[in-house]
Amino acid sequence: MSVTETLSKPEITPRKKSAFREWLDSILFAVTAAVLIRWLFFSAFVIPTPSMENTLLVGDYLFVSRLHYGTTTPVTPLQVPLTHQTIWGTSIPSYLDWIQLPQFRLPGFSEVKNGDVVVFYLPVEHPEMYQRYSNVLPDLHPHPTDLRSNYIKRCVGIAGDKLEIRGGQVYVNGRPQALPPRMQNEYFVAVTTAVNEENVFRKNGITDYAQFTETFDDSITANDQMGYIVKTTAALAEKLKSYDFVKQVQPMFMEKGLKEPYLFPRTDLLNWNKDNYGPVAVPEKGMTVPMSPANVALYGDIIRFFEGNANVALDGDRITIDGRALASYTFKQDYYFMMGDNRHDSADSRYWGFVPKDHIVGKAVFVWMSIDPNPTSFFSKIRWDRIFRVIH
């Protein structure tokens, strides 16, 4: 009789991770999860300027959905996770531009529509453009596409639209566009006496105002009326009329034909201003335009910098590719025209031009926190009425 010996494997006791290793793994998992969520689903932003008042206020913290329009793949992969342009609290760049990848957009469930509040990368931070716009945006710096400054504006013109502004009213394809409910304009408030600014303006939510006593426009301040220049909504402007010391409240718009400096496009061919602008055709993929001198001024920059063309040159009122002057041009991607809701205090497409589709980041969805940078008291620091406010 034979006997077969069975050898059992010695038990192996799993090696317990050190506390430091467990902490490191947890941090790595959290950072990876945060990067994926921030890239695929939504990002958090804070409003630093008043260009979208009174829809969005300085100090509003909001979530922006990347799912609506489809998130884009990274162009600059060599960057510190969860940073944008610089390492936290320093001026040290957080990325290396040694590798630049082609960009692709994942499927979304919506296209950018007229009236959407959109976050996008600022196009004029292109390395060959930014210096020309420093008089409008003094803090511009060149960055790769996916690391340019995030801007938030309202889309007033989508690809293929014909857009015009007449007396402050936006017209799209010949029809007046609905005004944002909390849009701000500039008003002259004529008064009979100096007012208590805290009780009259700040109590009504008006934070941008200045006293004015000299005639600057005979149609507004005839007979040297004393008054204030305020930026506010139409509803609040109407409310100001109820005060007995207010003589009149009049919107301030630039006259048609009065050319405004630093407006886009930079040309003497067009006498436009922020209140009377266009008409202009917003470029659409597949749309062909003749290369007239005015169209070269309007579309020359995007043909050079955002269409993937090589050897493009602007020569006065001509544009050439490989030395051949273009008689017409067919666009390769869609573009958008963006404006701030604070119409008289917003550096937007009226000043620096169109936003390419590959610069679109996402749709602003709701405010999750709002902190007043200039509270009247400690208890008013948080604007409780704005928390979880849906953005329209």
Rank of each mutant, 00 (worst) to 15 (best):
A210E: 10
I391E: 05
D315Y: 13
A30C: 07
Y171W: 11
L258Y: 12
Q177E: 15
E214Q: 08
Q177V: 10
G227E: 03
A235F: 00
W384T: 03
G59Y: 05
V170F: 10
G286Q: 12
M129Y: 12
I37N: 02
K17M: 04
D372Q: 11
N150Q: 15
Q85K: 11
Q177R: 14
F42S: 07
T232P: 00
P279M: 13
N342P: 02
K162C: 04
R324V: 14
R343Y: 02
D341N: 14
A190V: 09
G227W: 08
W39K: 01
N273S: 03
T233Q: 00
S65Q: 08
P251T: 07
E238D: 14
H126V: 10
A33H: 04
K239E: 00
D146G: 05
S8Y: 01
I360C: 04
F305R: 07
K259P: 13
F253N: 09
M254P: 03
D341I: 11
I27T: 12
D224Q: 08
M252S: 13
K247G: 00
A237Y: 03
D345A: 04
K285Y: 15
A194I: 09
P81C: 13
T330M: 02
F120M: 02
A325N: 13
V191M: 02
L82V: 03
N54G: 01
N342D: 10
I99A: 02
A222V: 08
F29L: 08
A210C: 02
K285L: 14
V312N: 12
G257H: 08
G362P: 08
K332E: 15
P265R: 12
F20V: 05
F216Q: 03
T71K: 07
G168Y: 05
F45M: 06
H84A: 02
V230Y: 00
I12R: 09
H126S: 03
V390D: 07
D315F: 12
S377H: 03
V170W: 10
V119T: 14
I387A: 05
K357P: 00
F306Q: 04
H68M: 08
Q103R: 11
Y277A: 05
T32G: 06
V31D: 10
T49G: 06
N196E: 14
A313T: 11
I303P: 11
S149D: 14
I27Y: 03
I321D: 12
R175N: 13
R154T: 06
T232Q: 02
K259A: 14
I360K: 02
G205A: 00
K256Q: 14
S8Q: 01
L96N: 12
V195R: 00
P50W: 08
E22T: 07
V191W: 04
G174V: 10
A237D: 01
N295E: 12
Q131T: 06
G157L: 09
I12G: 05
V246F: 10
G316T: 08
Y243V: 00
Y151D: 09
G316M: 07
D322K: 14
